[in-house]
Design a binder for these strands. Structure first.
Length: 836
RNA sequence: GCGAGAGUGGCGGAACAGGCAGACGCACCGGAUUUAGGAUCCGGCGGUUUACACCGUGGGGGUUCAAAUCCCCCCUCUCGCACCA
């Protein structure tokens, strides 16, 4: 029985209830079919789903539903990245508890997801704020600590005065806190770090494994972020030692220019900066410069237009190879936290050094000779930064830059003055947060034993929930006696717990693996389950996570592998990555402050989940940003109504699929054959497009098939053969559409008498014979310009085609009086006649 | 500046490997149906032109029988990185 009108709300709720009751999309770890692990980046439970979520999860859901129908054992889990700052902010603002706020949001967003009909494996749902989850993270931390992959160090940290927390360099955007956009200041603190730099080379090299599976630009971004450069380290001995320091070490990518050094520049923040000042007068000058540079630290220094400034310290170092005196300067363009905080000054071959030398009258010495010319160094207008032949470089004269630089580095090594070196831009990951709503770092401080890791059997170190957030937003943990006061795991005496919590990026660095056996209690993972499911076959999320999250997850995968948690052959967590574009409205990203948010719930209430899903997929290819359109979603709604009407109005004609399996004889006439052909073409096209994640064109192909069905119902008669052709095409349209609009398709499938669930039906296949045509339309060109078309029999050979083309009136009109020089025939497509 | 990507009708976008540019949808126009509106169904819809024809995928060159697609130069936009030694 099919109702006359399509009422999405009723049928959607009905199917959602059935799916939930049957755990319809739960994966079975012991299912022997080939696996497919599809994952979308899990959401932060911020309150409500927004359109970006809807799109992200719709993309993943269609992929999952297609793979299931194609016979794969599909894992498609969901969970909540549930620790984090917004919960604390909301708690302060609303006088509630971060946990209460978080769990309420999770309940709300879970309901919204269910309302959208996503085919998730709900029994595997996780929330990272639960001790059952973060206890394993604490265990990982202890193992990292054992292996030296976690360590403590005191360092100047980015400090957000508004959030009262340290930020990783990666979380500082243009000198502002990435969350609250407050101006970031510097503060010295002891922090916990994870040694991601130990994996710098592997993280870089393994990017090669991801080529083809990851977008090129994400790979490029990661490569730049890791920022490996090869060169040499060089020690310049100080003329007179300053305290313990006997030399200044620098790193250079251009050791071939070492003989061109005429000065050195240190960052104002270099540890020796002020102590280098020679003489009382210099000391004041240097101190003033350092003060000034500190004032414009970071933010100002990121300005391109910043004028290079410096001050001579009054002290010299000695050139390691020539022994010449090299004046030591401080310069505002040298960064204390990159490399060694000092650079050698080669004005002839580095533009910054050149500008600096010109400004302060320092000599310019040319040591690389560009081909064919030998400019006067005094008249140079810019540095020559290219490669070339070494000159004025003692025994290296005449060598090319590349080998010459290596030879210089080797000599330095031999003489104990440096040597070949590599430099990474990547720095260790600071995971300490002075926050409450995060996973406690499982260490204690004991007056007798010092720093003591918590014992693994004492995990989890549970985050206490009976706390009250103060108005200032500062962590209540240090003031929570019951948490802080504890027993030393080593001596049993009184001790204090670490009150810093972990960066929430730690939770999201391994959650994809936890899903493989999410309810396991005695260990984080089951080895068999890991081997079965990992790596994730397709990972879908926003490109804004291209660096941080994805790099950390890659690092964790390698580290957990080396710690024995992951199989030894697993090096990369995500085989394929799809970065979806943003949903814009009125040309801008949707945001509350801009007042251009479209609420998914409102849209679902108005049009139904199927329409919302369909529009999100139809409006643009997944990687591209798309513009929300109120008129556009009307179009999607109209289409689904049209599909419904086709089945409602043709219910007499439509047979269940089982009754329409048939031979070719059914295609009794041209119209039936044509519909059958379009059916098979649609199967081919949608299949190809689904494989390429081109959901927009897949939907377009289904629309074409539905349009063909509408036309066919006028043309086809009531013979059993014609009914079978019509019914088969209609069933196929439903099947192809079902991943995108599962509720309506499932309903119509059932209502038109099919057995079983459409979600469990096999993905249709197509036959080449059915897509063939009797006649083909061939384009006719004269000198590359379209002049007409020609209907020919499908079997026509080249000679026949050529002859037919040459005699076609449309062609003759343009070749009359000309000599035919050449005829190009592309079988079944076109004939181009070259005449002149 | 470096790296990556993009530029096609009024709009979102098609065209997978050089082969009929504009699939599909939105908007718009016409027709049918309707008391009317809406909904629906059918048809039209790049520009110039009465027509023949010509022009047309950011701009300019090139390769080719044939270019949105390949090559060179330039412009614009988006994203990422950026005084990186």
């Amino acid at each position: 029985m099919i109702q006359k009108r399509y009422h999405p709300q009723d049928i959607e709720k009905k199917w959602q209830a059935r799916w939930l009751a049957r755990n319809a999309f739960a994966a079975d770890n012991s299912d022997a079919r080939p696996k497919c692990y599809l994952l979308e980046m899990f959401p932060y439970p911020s309150g409500d789903l927004h359109m970006g979520h809807v799109r992200n999860y719709a993309i993943g859901d269609v992929a999952a539903r297609v793979k299931r129908m194609q016979g794969f054992n599909v894992l498609h889990p969901i969970g909540w990245d549930a620790f984090g700052l917004p919960a604390e902010n909301a708690a302060v603002k609303n006088r509630t508890h971060p946990a209460a706020w978080t769990y309420a949001n999770i309940a709300n967003m879970r309901a919204q997801m269910l309302r959208l009909g996503y085919s998730y494996d709900w029994p595997r749902e996780i929330a990272t704020c639960r001790p059952e989850y973060y206890r394993f993270e604490q265990a990982f931390f202890l193992r990292f600590l054992q292996k030296g992959l976690a360590y403590r160090k005191t360092a100047p940290q980015n400090w957000c005065p508004s959030c009262h927390t340290v930020l990783a360099n990666e979380q500082v955007l243009d000198g502002l806190c990435w969350r609250c956009e407050s101006r970031v200041t510097q503060k010295n603190l002891t922090q916990w770090f994870l040694k991601i730099t130990a994996y710098g080379d592997e993280l870089l090299n393994d990017l090669a494994l991801l080529e083809g599976g990851w977008p090129e630009r994400v790979i490029a971004m990661q490569r730049n972020w890791i920022g490996k450069s090869a060169g040499a380290s060089v020690k310049f001995p100080l003329e007179k030692p300053v305290g313990d320091a006997r030399d200044i070490e620098i790193f250079t990518t251009r050791p071939d220019t070492l003989f061109g050094v005429t000065f050195m520049t240190l960052a104002p923040g270099h540890p020796l900066a002020e102590r280098l000042a020679g003489g009382r007068e210099k000391a004041a000058e240097v101190r003033a410069f350092v003060e000034r540079a500190r004032g414009m630290d970071r933010l100002a220094r990121q300005d391109d237009t910043l004028e290079k400034e410096g001050v001579f310290t009054g002290t010299c170092a000695l050139h390691p190879l020539t022994g010449e005196r090299v004046p030591l300067w401080l310069g505002n363009f040298v960064l204390a936290d990159y490399g060694t905080g000092a650079v050698m000054g080669v004005p002839a071959h580095d533009q910054r050094d050149f500008d600096f030398a010109r400004k302060y009258g320092l000599p310019v010495r040319l040591v690389i000779r560009p081909d064919g010319e030998f400019p006067d160094p005094e008249r140079l207008e810019a540095a020559w930064t290219g490669q070339g032949r070494m000159v004025n470089s003692g025994r290296f004269d005449g060598m090319e830059s590349g080998p010459g630089g290596k030879a210089v580095a080797e000599l330095l090594k031999k003489e104990g003055k440096g040597g070949p070196a590599v430099q990474f831009r990547l720095r260790d990951w600071n995971i300490s947060r002075q926050r409450y709503w995060g996973a406690p770092i499982p260490v204690v401080y004991c007056d007798r034993c010092g720093l003591v890791p918590e014992k693994e059997e004492n995990l989890p170190v549970v985050l206490p929930l009976d706390v009250t957030m103060g108005d200032d937003g500062r962590s209540p943990l240090p003031g929570t006696e019951a948490f802080v006061n504890c027993r030393c795991p080593a001596c049993g005496g009184e001790a204090r717990r670490e009150t810093d919590t972990m960066d929430t990026f730690v939770e999201s660095s391994w959650y994809f693996a936890r899903y493989t056996d999410a309810r396991k209690t005695d260990a984080p993972f089951d080895e068999q389950a890991l081997r079965r499911w990992l790596p994730v076959d397709l990972y879908i999320g926003g490109v804004e996570h291209a660096i941080l999250h994805l790099l950390y997850a890659r690092f964790f995968t390698k580290a957990l592998r080396d710690l024995g948690f992951f199989p030894p052959e697993l090096s990369e967590p995500f085989a394929r990555l799809l970065t979806q574009g943003m949903v814009l409205n009125k040309g801008r990203k949707m945001s509350k402050s801009k007042g251009n948010v479209v609420d998914p719930t409102e849209m679902t209430d108005k049009y139904g989940a199927d329409t919302v899903r369909m529009f999100c997929l139809f409006a643009a290819p997944p990687e591209r940003d798309f513009e929300w359109s109120d008129a556009g979603i009307e179009g999607s709604s109209r289409f689904l109504h049209r599909v419904w009407r086709l089945f409602a109005e043709e219910k007499e004609r439509i047979l269940p699929l089982g009754a329409c399996e048939s031979g070719d004889g059914d295609a009794a006439n041209d119209d039936a054959r044509d519909l059958r052909r379009r059916e098979h073409l649609a199967v081919r096209k949608v299949g190809e497009d689904m494989d390429r994640f081109q959901f927009n064109t897949a939907i377009a192909a289904v629309m074409e098939l539905v349009n063909a069905l509408y036309l066919a119902r006028e043309k086809l008669g009531d013979s059993p053969g014609e009914r079978r052709v019509f019914s088969s095409a209609a069933a196929t349209a439903l099947t192809l559409l079902s991943p995108v609009a599962p509720h309506i398709c499932e309903e119509l499938w059932e209502a038109s008498g099919h057995e079983g669930r459409l979600a469990e039906a096999a993905w249709p296949s197509w036959e080449a014979a059915a897509t063939a045509r009797d006649t083909l339309t061939v384009a006719l060109q004269v000198n590359g310009r379209l002049r007409g078309t020609l209907e020919v029999g499908a079997g026509a050979d080249k000679a026949a085609l050529e002859a037919a083309a040459l005699s076609a009136p449309a062609v003759r009109r343009h070749t009359d009086g000309l000599t035919v020089r050449k005829v190009i025939v592309v079988s079944g497509k076109l004939v181009n006649i070259v005449a002149g």
